[in-house]
Design a protein around this nucleic acid. Sequence first.
DNA 1: TGTTAATCGAGACGGTACGTCGAGTCTTGAA
DNA 2: TTCAAGACTCGACGTACCGTCTCGATTAACA
Lengths: 202, 202, 202, 202
Amino acid sequence: MPTPKVAPDSSRRSETARRAILAAAFDLVGEMGYAKLSIEGIAAAAGVGKQTIYRWWPSKGALLFDAFLALTTDGGQGGALPDTGDLAADLKLVLRATVDELHDPRYDLPMRALHTEIVHDPALAADYATRLDGPMRELKKERLRAAQRAGQLAEDVDLDVAVDLIFGPLLNRWLQRTGPLTHAYADQVVDTALGGLRPREA
Amino acid sequence: MPTPKVAPDSSRRSETARRAILAAAFDLVGEMGYAKLSIEGIAAAAGVGKQTIYRWWPSKGALLFDAFLALTTDGGQGGALPDTGDLAADLKLVLRATVDELHDPRYDLPMRALHTEIVHDPALAADYATRLDGPMRELKKERLRAAQRAGQLAEDVDLDVAVDLIFGPLLNRWLQRTGPLTHAYADQVVDTALGGLRPREA
Amino acid sequence: MPTPKVAPDSSRRSETARRAILAAAFDLVGEMGYAKLSIEGIAAAAGVGKQTIYRWWPSKGALLFDAFLALTTDGGQGGALPDTGDLAADLKLVLRATVDELHDPRYDLPMRALHTEIVHDPALAADYATRLDGPMRELKKERLRAAQRAGQLAEDVDLDVAVDLIFGPLLNRWLQRTGPLTHAYADQVVDTALGGLRPREA
Amino acid sequence: MPTPKVAPDSSRRSETARRAILAAAFDLVGEMGYAKLSIEGIAAAAGVGKQTIYRWWPSKGALLFDAFLALTTDGGQGGALPDTGDLAADLKLVLRATVDELHDPRYDLPMRALHTEIVHDPALAADYATRLDGPMRELKKERLRAAQRAGQLAEDVDLDVAVDLIFGPLLNRWLQRTGPLTHAYADQVVDTALGGLRPREA
DNA sequence: TGTTAATCGAGACGGTACGTCGAGTCTTGAA
DNA sequence: TTCAAGACTCGACGTACCGTCTCGATTAACA
């Protein structure tokens, strides 16, 4: 049975070319932003024929996502969230680290680009959910579950909603630039989310 | 911001052309999405020369924003948030309406387009903050202030953070498709944000 | 009877504007050649509205022609061709002067431009024949007639053909750059045309 | 000259596209004249991308010249000028044929276009001299040399000047429309050029 | 251990859109 | 009414990339 056209024989695939393309894509998007990023430019920078890109990636978004994934996986922080027993402190630590990362110019443009693609491409969004956001979210929920076991988190709280409340605001503020993205803001978010908006009964 | 580079004499500006352009831009982005939206297409659909667009708008994003603003302002829901005295109920009402709006196919594509443009264009983001998000956010904060006066909201809560917690998650889930966008989710967000994640002391 | 649209009331015409336009047209065509000459540019250089040009000239060629005419008439060499009694010497004098003029960079570009327009626009060609070439040609023929009376030119020679033979080659060589345009060439043309190609019977 | 700026690998060049472009260029210039001839129009008529034209030709004039050359070469009359032993008769034959050709509407517009481009573009003029005018002129001079050997042409006549005198006037009259272009005129030019303007000693 | 078929680099191709320039028309307000 | 000014529609410019399509020239699995 001949190999179908849609799935080229990846055994013959050049690993060198693949790596060069992903690196070039990541570098270029960081240099000149997503709008001016072109397949042609990536191919040239990677010293690769255009067809080699079109052969293996269905869209610019998919390529960008792979480029992102490659770097994240390589040096991936992989591990679980810290658990010192103090939920608020742990969350603040993580959120402050996130704030720092979002300020890193090396990641700023590529991450914005990726988010743009996700917003417009449901298929890519699904991929993102499965391969990047999903695992991350699971780690976060794991930490929250531990907190529930320790009685630091209400039993009836939906953990997905909890994750949205805690980790969403930072991303929003970063993407939309609705305000300064600081450690103080990270702390406030954690405190407010944990404590709730309603006055605590004295 | 949608002010032209070397401000032409706007007193001579053709109002007919302006309106036709904004309408065409909004319609086209709704029909075929932002990626395939072209200035050339908008000009053709509006029966207008390309130069007339380039004369008055510095970027596709700025034009889109104006188109959005024109429609929002025209039929604008303008008014304050409902205040029945029951904060949770009022917020749920508003969030459920937002959910419905986000499901309206007429607004889906244009709003996604606008949001991703904001992500990439700080100038546009500033304009957005001033002319769309700002006023909206003020209305939201006004309602929350009323709740504070009524003792339904803690005195020490930062209202900006509160708004982020309540209204951000919906937008995030919609943009990133991280989960179903339902009335139930809206209710959960309100309840969780108001009550907080921490267990209430019995 | 109202003045017809095709012939605006020239009594109200601004002489200042007219002169400025002609001067600007001539200068600009000399500076940047005919291809890059634009009505817009002329209007700007003359400090004049575009409409003022369109009101009074039907085409770029007509304007250029007028500009040319204005300068030629002003300092026009107007007078008859020299007549010392020696036809060959007189013609060589005139042709050598023409050679010099054609080498003047101030006139090179404008004259090429004018000739181009004449080639493509029969109406302009007619105008040219009537107002520039015609009078010139008459002066030349007058000199040849005198030569005929003096027995230096055959009686049966068609003077128009004679003029073509004597004055045409210079123009051709200049326009098409088929060879160097020198005084020697001018002399050769005169001698050959007068003497004929056929061997003189001994 | 029609050599591209940074010579692309012409081995990959599409002969189909080349031919279609040249044909379209020639046809269009004949239909609507040089002024309204656009690269865009040629590309569309040839079913070709604009870039394919820009890739291989540096200017509209160069393209036009190639188009002209292609047709001239294809059906090229190539051969030498007739030589019956009677120089005057032979020249009249050739000039009358030229008159007829210049009246052919199929060639009128394209040839005017080519000639005016030559006037403005020295590089094109050089190419024209090398590839079209040069060979033609050589044929003409060859015939004149034969006449010299036969004693029908003075020995001391510069053949280039002779060619200018014989063949130039027709072109001039045609381009500038300074008079009717007839067989009679052709004959007159030959007779006058051969006989000279000066009276023959009886 | 050659054969052979997929992949590679390169880049021409037909297209679409870009952002700019200028054409020629029209409108406004001043002289 | 003409003028300077300049916005308007329209068409073309020359460029940048798109995604498809040959081209040899590797190159790695199979025969």
